[in-house]
């Protein structure tokens, strides 16, 4: 529509335009209002809480500035919690991607029954983390669990999954990978199906064996998929909570940053200010990872 220069139509146009703006606002207002009240407002409030010495439920709070941050980072707690978080994240992400790729390679052959296998492997991803944790807790139980019975049959003693913090963390990592593996497999499968067949054929004609073809052609072509999965699974692992609390109620072995924030804020001494500091640290980490993703994706778009 070209603008008309006489006076009256312009007024009509601006009136119509204003109406259009109001309609837009009416459409987006409910969602935007909820987002402001329940996402952005608490996000800022959480940062404010993190500067308080405040017990949840108490009417009184003392401002301590960055005191909570100083306490956390100068005590041994930061090292312990961040180490647990790092071990959990690196182990779950690494195993999920490696095993997911393995399953995807098998699925990609499109053998009869592959569709069923794909759906089955994906199913745990959409199950309640809490329920999955409980189901596996019974299997892992060192006394009456199925796993300990099987290990005993082959002459091994069951590890102390429940009482040893390191074994508890290992157990939680195994179950978390079990739950998320199918997601990585499906995403990798889509990536594999986009690998052009003629490139692989050319490599075949050049005398490259299947192993070499995989490492020199397929894997590099999959690198955008790998990068996407790397970012999403890191973000998901950092937010894992249901499964952790189901299997390690008191947080003795799997006390990651997010789990620590819950336990200090809502259990134990209900230190709300300290807990808010912990979730602010977590949020900062999530923002940094997301920004790295945006920068890398941007660059890749430009290079092409």
């Amino acid at each position: 529509m070209t603008a008309v220069t006489t006076k009256r139509p312009r007024q009509a146009l601006s009136g119509r335009r204003l109406r259009e703006w109001l309609i837009f606002l009416a459409f987006v207002a409910p969602n935007v209002a909820l987002i402001v009240v329940f996402t952005y407002r608490p996000l800022l409030q959480n940062i404010y809480y993190s500067t308080l010495n405040w017990t949840l439920g108490s009417k009184f709070a003392t401002p301590v500035g960055l005191g909570n941050y100083r306490d956390f980072f100068t005590s041994g707690e930061a090292r312990e919690v961040l180490t647990t978080t790092a071990i959990f994240t690196v182990a779950t992400v690494g195993l999920t991607l490696a095993l997911g790729l393995g399953v995807a390679l098998a699925l990609n052959r499109k053998l009869p029954g592959a569709g069923f296998a794909q759906a089955t492997v994906f199913a745990p991803y959409i199950l309640s983390g809490y329920g999955v944790g409980l189901a596996w807790l019974y299997i892992f139980d060192p006394n009456i669990g199925a796993l300990s019975a099987i290990l005993r049959d082959v002459g091994l003693n069951s590890p102390e999954w429940i009482n040893s913090p390191r074994w508890t963390l290992t157990m939680v990592i195994i179950v978390y990978v079990w739950k998320n593996l199918g997601y990585a497999a499906v995403i990798y499968l889509a990536g594999l199906q986009a690998v052009p067949g003629d490139v692989l054929e050319a490599a075949d004609l050049d005398g490259a064996g299947p192993v070499r073809r995989f490492f020199t052609v397929t894997l590099p072509l999959l690198s955008p998929t790998t990068f996407f999965l790397l970012v999403t699974t890191i973000l998901n692992s950092l937010q894992a909570f249901d499964l952790l609390i189901a299997m390690d109620k008191l947080g003795r072995g799997a006390r990651t940053l997010i789990f620590d924030a819950y336990l200090t804020g809502f259990k134990e001494q209900s230190q709300a200010g300290y807990s808010a500091m912990l979730s602010t640290v977590l949020f900062a980490i999530l923002v940094v990872i997301t920004l790295i993703q945006l920068i890398v994706v941007e660059r890749r778009v430009h290079y092409r």
């Binding site: 935007v32 608490p42 809480y49 997010i258 819950y262 807990s275 999530l286």
Partner: peptide, 25 residues
């Protein structure tokens, strides 16, 4: 709407805020 793009980014960015961070407030 003149600021449509910013509204979209504001909505999209909420995906970066996990519910755990907003749970306490």
């Amino acid at each position: 709407f003149p600021g449509k793009k910013y509204v979209f980014w504001g909505v999209l960015a909420t995906m970066m805020v996990p519910p755990q961070v907003t749970a306490l407030p």
